[in-house]
Simulated scan of single mutants.
Amino acid sequence: MSDFDFADRVERVEPSATLAISNLASELEADGIDVVDLSVGEPDFPTPQNVVEAGQDAMASGHTGYTSSNGVPELREAIAEKLRGDGIDCTSDNVIVTPGGKQALFETFQSLIDDGDEVALLDPAWVSYEAMVKLSGGSLNRVDLAPYDFQLEPALDDLSEAVSDDTELLVVNSPSNPTGAVYSDEALEGVRDLAVEHDIKVISDEIYEQITYGVEQTSLASLDGMGDRTITINGFSKAYSMTGWRLGYLCAPEELVSQAAKLHSHSVSCAVNFVQRAGIEAITDTDDAVTEMRDAFRERRDMLVDLFAEHDVDVPVGDGAFYMMIPVDEDDQAWCEGAIEDAHVATVPGSAFGSPGYARISYAASEERLREAVDRLATHGYI
């Protein structure tokens, strides 16, 4: 048998560290071991019942075939209306509906980045950004926010020194995975000023924008000068607890939409028809369910901060998403491996996100399981 000669693009990337930890947790659970899995960013709430029923009704009504590649018109218009409410000047022509927000990001990177193009990331950054940059042939320029408790505003001078006229793209994720940080308007205005000065395009990943605690998230594309240089990424997985439905979207200037649409049509064809119909229900009639989930996440966050404080662990407190970065040993990979093997608590090493010395935990789990996780980590000497 001859060996395969793999393409350079796939050799440049590693498997997802998050899913690797989750797979290890699954293996332990298959052996009968009780694992508190805080590694995967998936809400532990069911999809709202009215959304489920809308999907079922759509299937029963025969919406099981292809749709127009960019998405059904009703959903694209509902998304555009939602974004206009966020201050973004857009129409349905600016929207592509994708099978998950990750696909929207992938199409954006592939449309904008050529070999050697510079992409700036704010560390810690979601692991798939790095992989997508490498798959597109781009080069990474990373700005470390860890010294500033993961906030962007005090790091604007660092960002200013890092970017230049050679920077093609900047990725901003607020609320942030993995830190939960919600960047201030002043920070986003600083991003705007640098983007305009150096003619940088900006991806604004806003997948967690409805999960914030006591603050309002601002869409970058709503700022003066940003409408024609921002690609807004969002989706239904987090706010509506629809991870397995795989539904997301991008909103961008029409010239980018026309290019990304070519990738879209030649790869995934379209998002699933009846899932799109369920998405219309989600975006128009789920306010109560979103509020209930958001309130629960906030209570869990506050509880965890108090529990870690009892063990003299000072945790940077984020105002959004459902993640927390806890300081651990310098070798965070070894810490996470030990935590799952000894305490049977699954976390993700901060080095996977570009910030060694931390571990990311997801508090998309019940209060009981979160308490159990902290107890186990304390009992086994990990905090």
Rank of each mutant, 00 (worst) to 15 (best):
Y148S: 11
D165I: 14
A195D: 00
V202M: 09
E197W: 01
S174M: 07
E186F: 14
L152T: 12
Y208P: 03
H198V: 00
A162P: 07
S160K: 15
E197I: 02
T179C: 09
Y208F: 14
V182Y: 08
D199H: 10
Y148T: 00
V163R: 01
P154L: 08
Q210W: 04
D205F: 10
E161A: 15
S164Y: 08
S176G: 15
V172L: 05
F150E: 00
E189V: 15
S174G: 11
E168V: 05
I200T: 01
D166K: 14
R192S: 14
L152C: 12
E186K: 15
V196S: 00
V182M: 13
P178E: 08
T179W: 02
P178G: 12
E153Y: 13
A195Y: 02
P154S: 06
P154Q: 04
A155S: 13
A146W: 03
E186P: 14
V202C: 12
D205P: 01
F150Q: 02
I203Q: 03
E197G: 02
V191Y: 05
P154K: 05
L194W: 00
A146H: 04
V171N: 03
T179N: 04
D157T: 05
D149K: 00
A187L: 08
P175T: 01
G190R: 03
S174H: 09
Q210D: 12
V191A: 06
L170R: 04
A162C: 13
D165T: 15
T179A: 11
Y208K: 05
S176M: 11
V196H: 00
A155F: 07
D199Y: 10
N173M: 09
Q210T: 13
E206W: 12
S184M: 12
S160Y: 07
E197R: 03
E153N: 11
E206A: 13
Q151T: 02
I211F: 05
G180E: 04
L159W: 07
D149G: 04
E206M: 14
K201N: 13
E206V: 15
Y208R: 02
L156F: 08
V202G: 05
Q210H: 11
N177W: 08
P147H: 08
